[in-house]
Design a binder for these strands. Structure first.
Lengths: 185, 185
DNA sequence: CTTCAACCGGAATCACGATTCCGATTCTAT
DNA sequence: ATAGAATCGGAATCGTGATTCCGGTTGAAG
């Protein structure tokens, strides 16, 4: 039988970790997370063997939400806007929830199994939206995934710094989107 | 009288620091810099009171080079391309020489006197090139500095990760530039 | 060729967080 | 109510890298 307090604490830890990681990114301290969860660090470590593991859990949950959103956009919205909407969604997420960006992209480094599967799913989702948008003539046909990912990464990272206001970010994205649509020059 | 060996060592330290910081960014270790300079850490610290100070020295030197480049472009090249050339120059610099990006931009944080003067000069240089480009009709007139800085920051950060090949970065910038030129949508 | 202040090298010290350990506390089952 | 396994809390421990210290060296001046 699983102890009820263990369940409660795990939930608290997860919630506190999400808050703190979103606010401070990877540099957040374990103490802070434990304190915010009203729990000792020992408890925190019993639930998540390492800071990295905790981080992964949070990030993967968030990626799942994004994947849902992608699916929704693919069916609901029209292909003309779905792609840009999802792009914006990711950037907005990066702005509010720090430390998602690197995990979201991350080329090399040490990727675990589950993590890499989410990663692949994410790439598929983006590729799908891109293809639809291109078929619908909403995005120029000469852009491929690598460029899109690089641009997405840059936009996310800039947003993550928190140095730019929402309107400025909005205008920046608008410029970027114009570039993705344009055919001539 | 300043000892000749002291002068020699200072130069070595500076050179080694530049190499190491460019390769590894802020996370470079002082030991490594000292070793690379063929000097003890003690010597390193006599010349630069802190890692931060050393970092500042390197970054400011690099910013000066960029400022020279900006001046050259403003006089030599035509306004049509000067702006984009400088933008690319900064991004290329970020790719090769890591850990310049944050210092180059950096909104809040603790800025020292000299540092902030360079920072202001940099902003002026970019603003000047942007204005010229807009007057020449090379850049849409409805974009302002904030957006440009945000885009520059994003591009620099993405380049800095080293996850994207030169061709991909090139294509990404091309898309961005198209967005900056476009008038319609 | 002395002298000695400035300069060196690098071991020792500090600082800061992550992670471990273990006695004290609960839960759950009987 | 009671046992005892699972779970707690948080002090102590580790690891990593920046910074300090100080006995030994070395260049410059007389």
């Amino acid at each position: 039988m699983i102890r009820s307090d263990a369940v409660r604490n795990r939930m608290r830890v997860l919630q506190a970790a999400e808050e703190v990681l979103d606010e401070q990114g990877l540099s957040a301290r374990m103490d802070e997370i434990a304190r915010r969860a009203g729990v000792g660090v020992g408890t925190l470590y019993r639930h998540f063997a390492t800071k990295e593991a905790l981080y992964q859990a949070i990030v993967m949950a968030r990626i799942d939400l994004l994947l849902d959103e992608a699916a929704r956009l693919r069916s609901t919205g029209d292909p003309q806007t779905a792609f840009f909407a999802f792009f914006s969604k990711i950037v907005a997420d990066a702005k509010r929830k720090k430390a998602l960006t690197d995990a979201l992209h991350s080329a090399g480094t040490d990727i675990k199994a589950e993590q890499s599967s989410r990663h692949a799913a994410m790439l598929d989702a983006i590729a799908g939206l891109l293809r639809n948008a291109q078929n619908a003539g909403a995005v120029r046909s000469d852009v491929a995934m690598p460029e899109v990912l690089a641009l997405l990464r840059g936009a996310s990272m800039a947003a993550e710094t928190g140095d730019y206001s929402a309107p400025v970010l909005q205008r920046s994205l608008a410029i970027l989107y114009d570039g993705l649509r344009v055919v001539s020059a």
